[in-house]
Design a protein around this nucleic acid. Structure first.
Length: 421
RNA sequence: GUGGGUGUAGCUCAGCUGGCUAGAGCACCAGGUUGUGGCCCUGGUGGCCGCGGGUUCGAAUCCCGUCACUCACCCCA
């Protein structure tokens, strides 16, 4: 047993899993570029008050899930539990609000939340995050949602569907919440203790309670889509109209309310199988009041976060293969000190030609060196023994065909290039 | 925070109701070919049986505690 182990809820990404990461990153770069989004990288920690202000004081994230600590300068800092707050801070601090709108940004990196780990849920996970600032048109919502959709589709996922809802805006949501509360007060006897608590603190969350006893109450609860103001209602109708036109399947889910307070109007998720009991591969929505709340001019915004670990889990579950990473194609093996010196020259010559090449180390037997070549899936080996050194030649063995030839050093690079295709 | 499951070799696991030096497969190393891989054969390295305590003549095995992992609830990506 090793003495040290990784922290609960964190994981090591080993070489076997790297192809998934590289494949997903590659797709992210392709797609964001296609949609005209630019990468930014906010720091991993920020002042605690930024997150409290943006995420919301009464959310689970702020109440019990943040990694918060005081630094040596007595400042309370927090490892980012989400991306959006840092994006907005970055946007305002760097004068990006002066850029032509919309300002379209993305990032990728670790997110920290103190939760009990389970399948598809970690204390440190990696998010791909997209945000668009300064545009309230629902076509903007469609564009942002489409980025997530296209990413999953290009990774090979089929049968995707959006979960969609509108959470209203400051014009209409308060009245809806009052209606909802009034309704719940008539059925207080039937609901669980958690819901009694939610009723005062965060009434929207009543709708996604999983307790069996609460389900009949939820089913008969007033639905927000029937309480939207005309602005929100229009926005939502345009959005669903665009989605219909694009042929993107969606379900309107009245229970979809997000765990962060800042959302307004559109909220959405993309659901997929194979991430344990979690079903959301990404979650996001519109937050038209948040930038102003954090000290900027009134500016609409919309974005989403997608958990890379969940994507990979689900890819494995569905048998979706990433592109393989390139492997070293050539091993240079040798026998004796003289040959070893020449082997070093050769391996560097090959690398200068951009041919992935390795050499053996130490005094391994011929057989062991050949085994190494086989194990690393080399296309060929270059052999330097006493006879090759004497004759000034190099033996090249094609490991796939099993054929072996002798060439001069001048011919070597071209011969190898042919073999490693 | 709550509940279930599991901790034995690098990995996957077997060790029944407690009994001699704790096993297998894979992987790794070496040999079978003093210069030729994959397949095969032979041998080898590698374990305070998660940790601590208890019961017992005797504990990987039973009991208690603890830690970790894992799944689920909560919540979320």
């Amino acid at each position: 047993m090793t003495k040290y182990q990784s922290i609960t809820g964190t994981r090591d990404v080993l070489p076997e899993e790297q192809p998934y990461w590289r494949f997903i990153e590659k797709k992210i770069y392709e797609i964001t570029s296609l949609f005209g989004y630019q990468r930014v990288d906010p720091p991993i920690f920020e002042e605690t008050r930024l997150f409290i202000r943006s995420v919301g004081e009464t959310t689970d994230i702020v109440e019990k899930e943040m990694y918060t600590f005081v630094d040596k300068g007595d400042t309370s800092l927090t490892l980012r539990p989400e991306f959006t707050a840092g994006f907005i801070r970055l946007y305002l601090q760097n004068g990006m609000h002066m850029l032509p709108k919309p300002v379209k940004l993305f990032s990728m990196g670790p997110i920290f939340r103190f939760e009990r780990p389970q399948a598809g849920r970690f204390r440190q996970h990696t998010q791909f995050n997209v945000e668009a600032f300064g545009e309230q048109d629902s076509a903007m919502d469609v564009e942002v949602m489409s980025i997530a959709w296209q990413l999953y589709a290009e990774l090979g996922f089929r049968g995707l569907r959006f979960q969609l809802n509108s959470t209203g805006c400051p014009q209409c949501r308060p009245a809806y919440i009052e209606t909802l509360k009034a309704y719940y007060h008539t059925r207080l006897q039937e609901i669980c203790s958690d819901c009694k608590r939610r009723l005062d603190r965060n009434a929207l969350r009543l709708l996604d309670c999983k307790s069996p006893g609460c389900q009949p109450v939820i089913a008969a609860a007033p639905v927000i889509s029937q309480h939207l103001c005309s602005s929100c209602d229009d926005h939502f109708h345009h959005l669903t109209g665009y989605l219909d036109r694009l042929g993107r399947p969606y379900e309107i889910n009245h229970k979809l309310v997000r765990g962060l307070d800042y959302y307004s109007k559109t909220v959405f998720e993309v659901w997929v199988q194979g991430i344990g009991s979690q079903n959301a591969m990404c979650g996001g929505g519109r937050y038209d009041g948040l930038i102003e709340q954090l000290g900027g001019e009134p500016t609409p915004g919309i974005g989403f976060g997608s958990g890379i670990e969940r994507i990979i889990l689900s890819m494995k579950e569905q048998g979706l293969q990433p592109e393989p990473l390139p492997e070293p194609r050539v091993l240079v093996i040798y026998f004796g000190a003289k040959a070893k010196a020449r082997a070093m020259d050769l391996v560097f010559t090959l690398r200068n030609e951009k041919i992935p090449a390795l050499m053996s180390f130490g005094e391994k037997s011929f057989k062991a060196q050949m085994r190494d070549a086989n194990r690393m899936h080399a296309a060929c080996v270059l052999i330097l023994g006493d006879s090759e050194v004497e004759q000034g030649v190099i033996s090249i063995k094609d490991l796939r065909q099993g054929e072996q030839i002798q060439v001069t050093e001048a011919e070597m690079v071209n011969r190898v290039k042919n073999l490693i295709r």
